[in-house]
């Protein structure tokens, strides 16, 4: 039989609770342990901070690269715009589309032969052409008022140019289909008799002529085929 005391958990608990420190424990040990723990807590927090710093350092070049890429794309867009401007300046005015008012302006300007006005118009042309790509409404707003007045005065001159001629769609004439037998009067080509002999002659002559020409061009010798020898 086991002792009842050994089965009693309170006995062990009470006995162990009276024990406050390990047998032969030095008091100063606790301070040393605290120092260790404190260092560990500090290190861990520093490591956590360092981790954030590393993450930030890793992200920084990515952000810079992204910014550079964005700025590059913007530059490319700007360059494209300039290229468009150049093309508009290089192309003759009559090749420009006639759908917008801006183009008619650019055409009319050189006809006037007024230098200051022409300069203004060229500027307007380059601007307005780019704007026509974006939106037609913007073109209307950009157009200066006095130039429109000039157009009205030089209306006839501007009409001579190719651009101002309104493109008219060619309407195909629909012809009535009638059978030949239904016609009352036959056309002459069907009524006249056909002379086939002439055609044959002509063909013969043609063939003979071709043979003569071939004989003249060729260099050769005749071989007599006889049964005497």
């Amino acid at each position: 039989m086991l002792s009842k005391k050994l089965n009693d958990p309170f006995y062990w608990k009470n006995k162990l609770e009276t024990l406050h420190c390990l047998p032969g424990e030095a008091v100063h040990k606790k301070d040393a342990l605290w120092e260790k723990l404190h260092d560990r807590l500090q290190q861990k927090s520093a490591a956590g901070k360092a981790k954030w710093y590393w993450m930030a350092a890793g992200l920084l070049p990515l952000i810079i690269i992204a910014c550079m890429m964005v700025s590059n794309t913007e530059n490319i867009g700007g360059k494209q715009e300039t290229v468009k401007e150049n093309t508009t300046k290089a192309t003759p005015s009559y090749l420009l589309p006639a759908s917008t008012k801006a183009v008619t302006l650019s055409v009319s300007a050189p006809v006037e032969k007024k230098q200051p006005v022409a300069v203004i118009n060229s500027k307007v042309k380059s601007k307005t052409f780019i704007d026509t790509i974006k939106a037609n409404n913007a073109v209307v707003t950009l157009l200066p008022e006095p130039i429109e007045a000039d157009i009205t005065t030089n209306n006839i001159l501007s009409a001579d140019t190719a651009v101002t001629v309104a493109p008219t769609a060619v309407v195909k004439k629909k012809l009535q289909v009638v059978h030949i037998n239904e016609l009352e009067t036959y056309p002459a080509q069907f009524t006249e008799p056909v002379n086939y002999a002439q055609n044959i002659k002509f063909r013969k002559n043609k063939i003979n002529n071709l043979n003569v020409a071939a004989q003249q061009n060729t260099i050769g010798f005749k071989i007599k085929l006889s049964s005497k020898n």
């Binding site: 086991l2 002792s3 062990w12 006995k15 162990l16 024990l19």
Partner: peptide, 20 residues
Amino acid sequence: EEIVLEEEALNNLSADEIFN
């Protein structure tokens, strides 16, 4: 082997002895 211990003797055991 089953051993029977005196309860008084167990009461006299110190905490250090029990821990050990």
